[in-house]
């Protein structure tokens, strides 16, 4: 479990083992404990001179506080770097105001069988078809299908050479635990793992890794999820990549509570009303995390063409309010999702 960083792990000058021991004995263990404590008191406790304490404090602030970015730098950065990744599907790009936002978390959610994995495979293929892009596809369910990708490429008239190149640019990692996923993101974060030309990370899917933490008040699960979110944001911004998490929607039938006003029937005689309710998985903490949430709904299968289906995609949440509730319809067939 990751919590606040401890002073002993920060490698600060002047804080020898003996000094750290004295601080620990006085319950000054974390960086925050040190920053909140009065400098004179710290000097007395550690037997270090006040100017040394002030230099340790300055070292902490220099090393760990966020670098300030001026608006003019921001303007330059925006004009020089990509801000969206085209999905290769015009109608989807249109509701996303250009494509998958770079530097942000995007969620694809929907009921089981709504086409989430199909769409994410298609996004991986479309993104990898542009020469410079590498895609990291994180499969947590064990159902990544290279054959499906090959079929999509084949149906789109790709040569075997192109197919091989595109498939090479889709890097697949199988992950079975939340800890391993966090570890993978950590290695991207501290650059011990470098993937050249990384443009898109797809995690299919997150709920199956989080299921094991249900119960036990989900403390460990939320801690890991918070860590993953922080790494995702950092990687998204620093490596200039889009990050897609697949989430699951659940549905259930619930008794509706009727308003008794203007209704003189006794509750015993009244017909019970049932309504369908739906919910995005991963709990309340996650609900506000993705910058964009796309809801996928599979429409009735076509009566004429058994091999095709239609998917409705709705932007149900977005950090750009003007595209909330925008919709598009995608066709799912042998050519993939178009």
């Amino acid at each position: 479990m990751i919590t606040m960083q401890k002073l002993k792990d920060l490698g600060l000058n002047h804080l020898s083992e003996a000094v750290l021991k004295r601080l620990t004995q006085n319950h000054i263990i974390t960086l925050l404990d040190f920053l909140q404590e009065d400098e004179m008191k710290l000097s007395a406790l550690t037997k270090l001179r006040l100017n040394v304490i002030l230099s340790v404090r300055a070292e902490i602030l220099t090393k760990f506080s966020a670098p300030i970015i001026n608006g003019t730098t921001l303007l330059k950065r925006i004009s020089e770097t990509r801000t969206v990744l085209n999905t290769g599907i015009l109608s989807l790009d249109s509701i996303l105001l250009g494509g998958i936002p770079v530097g942000y978390i995007t969620e694809l959610c929907g009921l089981a069988g709504s086409g989430k994995t199909q769409l994410s495979l298609q996004l991986a293929v479309n993104c990898a078809r542009r020469l410079e892009n590498t895609i990291l596809y994180i499969d947590t369910k064990g159902d990544f299908s290279a054959i499906r990708i090959q079929k999509i490429l084949d149906a789109n008239g790709c040569s075997h050479k192109d197919m091989a190149e595109i498939m090479y640019r889709i890097r697949v990692v199988h992950i079975w635990t939340m800890e391993d996923l966090v570890e993978l993101f950590k290695s991207l974060n501290d650059k011990t793992l470098i993937i050249n030309n990384l443009a898109l990370i797809i995690v299919d899917s997150l709920p199956c890794l989080m299921m094991q933490y249900i119960g036990d008040e989900n403390k460990i699960g939320f801690n890991l999820l918070n860590t993953l979110v922080n790494y995702s944001r950092f990687i998204g911004n620093q490596l200039n990549v889009g990050i897609i998490y697949i989430n699951v929607q659940t549905r259930w039938i619930d008794n509706d509570i009727l308003d008794v006003e203007d209704d003189d029937m006794s509750s015993a005689l009244r017909e019970p009303t049932y309504i369908e309710k739906r919910n995005r998985c991963l709990g309340k903490y996650w609900q506000n995390i993705p910058a964009v949430v796309l809801l996928l709904e599979k429409l009735e299968d076509s009566a004429t063409d058994k091999d095709s289906a239609q998917i409705k995609v709705t932007v149900i949440n977005s950090n750009i309010a003007r595209n909330v509730n925008s919709q598009c319809f995608l066709n799912l067939n042998a050519l993939g999702v178009i």
Binding site: S65, A66, P67, I68, I69, N70, G71, T72, L74, L75, N237
Partner: peptide
């Protein structure tokens, strides 16, 4: 924009 300061 020079009056805007951002800390990520």
């Amino acid at each position: 924009l020079s009056n805007l300061f951002i800390l990520d």
